[in-house]
Design a protein around this nucleic acid. Structure first.
Lengths: 144, 144
DNA sequence: TTACATGTAATCATTTTAGTTACACGTTCC
DNA sequence: GGAACGTGTAACTAAAATGATTACATGTAA
């Protein structure tokens, strides 16, 4: 199972806003870059907006970053697009047998262990900003 | 999206083998503790066997850990049950527009970033062994 | 040979995702 | 005011993945 590509698309969108900052960046234009449907882009941009990462207004083409891109981390985007929603990244089988020693304790035991691993991942995502992403894209572009 | 509960079930099975080590631990018995179907248990045990974590033989009831439980980490189980198979934990949208600067570089840019986060998570899973899980279960059980 | 266990394939229902369509609503400009 | 264009959002669809279930071949032991 894989994590929703909404995450990667969210990063793509923010990077595109910077690289293409002279343009209007309508949902249709962004959709062409991502290669998907404009409605999908609008939905994801709506999530980024709700998280305070971009500014966008109805009827006006284009979106703008709501803060400096060096202040937006991959973790911010990860949270914004609700990759895991209210649920945990790791799912635990529910309703194990309460008549069994392991069954009645396994959930309480492994949940914090799984959370620790999830937090380690999120911390790693905190170390990379959209600015880093843009820099890397432009570096790769210059080399070619 | 959540990571397959196969992972949690795999941990459950290994812990049960230890806590209940006097018994036969047939797939039917384990299924009752996990609260699922015996065939599901057999499939997961088969994966654990292939990874060298348990010993089990056709026709003979029960499975046994193939090594000391303090030498089996959550990461070992994670890999054994193929939570992410050959794919990455993070999925990247494919076929972004090659005519766009961001589109033709985004995949190569974010893939290693995502991998780093994934590895941070796996490293955290390496810090916990099945022995730790069993100890915690028995500790919780004693308190009640 | 009978009883019981594992190994494994096939099928099904459920859930989630992304894609698609459609339309209400906001903005701009003539 | 109205035409053109854009965002916001809901509804529906197709595809993919998961876990559950059933069935049966194969292995073991008494």
């Amino acid at each position: 199972m894989s994590i929703s590509s909404r995450f990667a698309v969210g990063v793509h969108i923010l990077a595109l806003l910077e690289v293409n900052k002279g343009e209007a960046n309508s949902s249709e234009f962004i959709a062409a870059s991502v290669n998907t449907n404009p409605a999908v882009i609008r939905k994801i941009i709506g999530m980024l907006k709700k998280a305070g990462l971009v500014n966008v207004r109805p009827g006006i083409a284009g979106a703008q970053p709501a803060k400096n891109l060096s202040e937006i981390t991959l973790h911010d985007v990860y949270k914004a697009v609700q990759v895991v929603q209210e649920k945990e990244l790791f799912s635990v089988h529910d309703q194990p047998n309460p008549d069994c020693t392991v069954g009645r304790n396994i959930q309480d035991t492994i949940t914090p262990m799984f959370s620790a691993a999830e937090q380690a991942m999120e911390k790693a995502l905190d170390n990379v900003t959209i600015s880093d992403v843009v820099d890397d894209i432009l570096r790769k572009e210059a080399v070619q």
